[in-house]
Every structure is written in structure tokens, then in C-alpha cells.
Nucleic acid binder design. Structure first.
Lengths: 230, 230
DNA sequence: TGATGTCTGTTATCTACAAAACAAATTTAC
DNA sequence: GTAAATTTGTTTTGTAGATAACAGACATCA
């Protein structure tokens, strides 16, 4: 069901942007398609961001750096998601998160004003954006809930399963993640300390629930699901 | 700045809905204005909700009940906020939160289909909704961050200050909250256990940072701000 | 006027995790 | 090819906060 919705989303995007890019750029001159390598920042915490970003392909990490110096990963965005500051950017709106690419990313960048105009002329698109924002909020709320109720073990499993769904490719034992993540990055994603995540991962490895090397994680999704008991 | 934005919001709403309600109801027959007393449920976790709710006045609590039986308060909505399920409700979308009124609430209820149509005909409104959803997501993200980084003490303070901003009325020492909240409700809002919140509140009372009786909380906002050191 | 139910205050116990620290294994850089 | 930097594995220690349990305070309703 998820994937059906997602296909519908990306279809809309493709049709809309790719069908007639020239005309679009005439109407909304700020639109540009941009291709960037991994680790690129779309915007940084503290910026005054006056653009919106529509992801065409790849994964973008949204994170926040706390005063204590620890990083929290808020969400991962993929094809079809829109991000940036939707508020009246005339005022001094400092954005409170950093958007950084994991892997290569392709996106459309649109200035706030053009984006807003686009939304008002293209009803389809506006609704699409509303749905996307709803989905994103739901993801954050789910994260909040698991952090408040589940122990780190379970959160690690959840995170891995989500990752597998987002960019896993099938392999013999389950899914292999296409993207390289350090233990620290996984920990930030889980919202836990690196050391605990490390021991948990080892524990899971010993039990045969997953396997990993320095630059690849392979997940036995069935075993992980079992562990949570559903 | 917050309040300016908020005023602009409610102005739009007033103009839109109240100016010509009759015409609106012709175009979108499902629209109804509803008035409910406190503790009413707009929808419950697990429902298949096919309506959207536009709050005209009052406060609505969004919460989630975990399997372990504890309640988590996700957010508080006030005038101008929109809630409900924005996803294709043809499919079996179980909603994962409960919306319950605190105090008396006045709202417009609109069926999914009509709402979607309305968004596509009224560009102003669609943008308004997008902004509202953005603001809501930011609130949830902020909550996530404070839970991950701040001790319960600080979270209690943050929560109280937010409450004061939402529905406090000025009094001699700072703000008095107009709404009755039990300690358990405060704890759910903070994301902590009731007993810890209780002792913290007492501690703060002894220090003169706030005062409260069974059915009223009075906050010395200056002192609370000081405590966090900013 | 009890009698029952909901709310508050406090304390004692227990545990999940963060923090710090360090050695081994790899990778990157020069 | 060696030095420096990063990543991993593990252990030790400290503590914030959950949980449970209970008594006192109020409220509600026969």
C-alpha cells in the first residue's frame, strides 16, 4: 500500500516537472534542477532559507545539532518529498535543521515566492504537498512515540527496518542497505548513544539477525520482525 | 512575531468562513459548524476518519495511547489549526491519534472530498493549510528534540511556558492558566512520569517560581525563563 | 455522613542508558 | 609507507527517571 502511494507520488512529479520543464521555467524562473554529490548541504541550521527543495532522486538527511553538541536525525527524505521553509520568509526565520544529502541527489530548487505562486496555480500540486507534509508529520510523531516508549534495542530494529524499506535491495538473507552509515549515524537516527548501539548491533549479529561490515549492513528482516513479536 | 502570524491566520479564517457561510455550504455541502463541550472527542485513535476539522475557537488535545497503556500528548491545537486525516481515505487508513477537546470548542467539520475540492478552488486556503502543517511539524520536531536532550525539569518549564503562551491570562505574578490540568495531564504533555513531575512542581513552588492549587496553575514566567538560563 | 473515587505528595528501589575512556582495526592523507 | 584520523568493540561507572506503593487531601454521590 505504501509503495502504491509512493508510485503515484513520483508519477505526479515526473509528469509535472519533466513533461514541460521549459514552460515551467518561463512561469517560475527560479526553478532549477540541480545534481549534487553525497554529503552536500541543501541548507544548514541557522540559515535564512528562502528556497524550497523538491527531491527528484536520492536521500536527504534532516538533522539538528543541539547546544550540547550531539546530532539528532529528524527524518530521511526521499524522492517526492519537499523541504525548506514554508513560512513567510520576509521575516527573520532561522531554519532549525540541516539538510544534507546521503549519496548522490537530484532535486528542483524553487524560490519561496515562485513556489507559493505555483501552489496557487496548480491545485493538484498543492494537494500533493499537503499530503506529503502530512506523511512527514506522521513519521516524526511515530519517532516521538517510539522514543518515549521503546527501549533502544527495539528502536534500532525499527530504524533498520525503515532503512531497508527506503533503500534496501533484496539479497539472500533479506535486505542489504545501499548507503553507507557509520555506527554514529545509526545512533543519531535511533536517538541513542553510539556505544549502546554498537553492542546491540553486535549482539544481533551473533544471533544471526543481521550482518555487517564497515561499509554495508545486511538485514534479516524476518528475524528482526520476529524479535519485536509481530 | 508569533502572535502577529497568528492574528493573520485567524483573520483569514474569519473572513473566509464567516463572510459567506451560506455560499460555502452550497459549494461544499458537508461543511458544518459544530460547538462541543469539554472532553468531547473529535476522533479517536483507530477510527477511520473521513473528515477534516478546522478549529474556530478553543483547544484540542492530540494524544496517543501506547500498548503499554500510557498516554502521550502529541500536540495542542488552537484556533486556526486544521486536523484529521489528509490521506486518501478510500484505503483503510486507521488514524493513530485521538483528538479531544480541552474546554469548550467550536469548529468546522468538512468531509475529505469537500475539503480537497475546497483546497483546489481556493488557492489562499491551500497555502494557509500548508503553512499550518509546517508549523505543526515544527512543534513536534521541537518536542522530539527537547525530549532527547533536556531533563524533565527543563521540559516541565518549557511545557508550562508554552501553555502560558497558548491560554494564559496575565495576573500579578505572571500568567494564570485558564484550563484545568491534572498532574497526570501535565506529565503526559511533558512526556514523563507523574510522580517526578509532582515533585518538580512542588520544588518550583517552594522556590516561588510558580504556584498552584487543585484547579489552577499560576506561573512566574520570568523566573522560569531565568531557570533555564536565557 | 459515611463511603468511594480521584487527585496529590513523597519515598524506596531498580534499571536502562549516557558518558568516558581506551585499545584494536581501518581508512585517509601526505 | 608511515603518521594521523576515523571507526569499531567493550568495559566501567554514575545517574536520571520509571515504577510501585501508600497516605493524606478533596470531591462526589448515596
Amino acid at each position: 500500500m505504501q509503495s502504491i502511494a509512493h508510485d503515484a507520488k513520483s508519477k505526479l512529479i515526473r509528469e509535472f516537472f519533466e513533461r514541460d520543464m521549459n514552460q515551467l521555467q518561463k512561469d517560475y524562473p527560479s526553478i532549477v534542477e540541480i545534481n549534487v554529490p553525497k554529503k552536500t548541504f541543501l541548507y544548514r541550521q541557522g540559515d535564512y532559507c528562502s528556497n524550497l527543495f523538491w527531491i527528484k532522486s536520492g536521500i536527504v538527511k534532516l538533522s539538528h545539532l543541539t547546544e550540547q553538541g550531539s546530532e539528532i536525525t529528524i527524518d530521511l527524505l526521499k524522492r517526492g518529498d519537499v523541504t525548506g521553509c514554508f513560512q513567510n520568509n520576509s521575516a527573520d526565520q532561522e531554519i532549525d535543521e540541516t539538510a544534507q544529502t546521503l549519496g548522490e541527489v537530484n532535486y528542483y530548487r524553487i524560490a519561496y515566492g515562485d513556489f507559493k505562486a505555483m501552489m496557487s496555480h496548480q491545485a493538484e500540486l498543492a494537494w500533493y504537498v499537503i499530503e506529503d507534509m502530512y506523511a512527514r508529520r506522521q513519521r516524526v510523531e511515530r519517532k516521538l512515540r517510539t522514543i518515549l516508549t521503546q527501549p533502544v534495542e527495539v528502536r534500532v530494529i525499527n530504524t533498520l527496518l525503515e532503512l531497508a524499506e527506503m533503500f534496501g535491495i533484496r539479497c539472500t538473507h533479506g535486505y542489504t542497505l545501499e548507503i553507507h552509515l557509520t555506527q554514529q549515524e545509526v545512533a543519531d537516527l535511533v536517538g541513542a548513544s553510539r556505544s549502546v548501539v554498537s553492542t546491540i548491533l553486535n549482539d544481533f549479529r551473533n544471533r544471526g539477525m543481521l550482518d555487517y561490515t564497515r561499509d554495508q549492513i545486511c538485514i534479516n528482516d524476518a528475524a528482526l520482525h520476529d524479535f519485536c513479536g509481530f
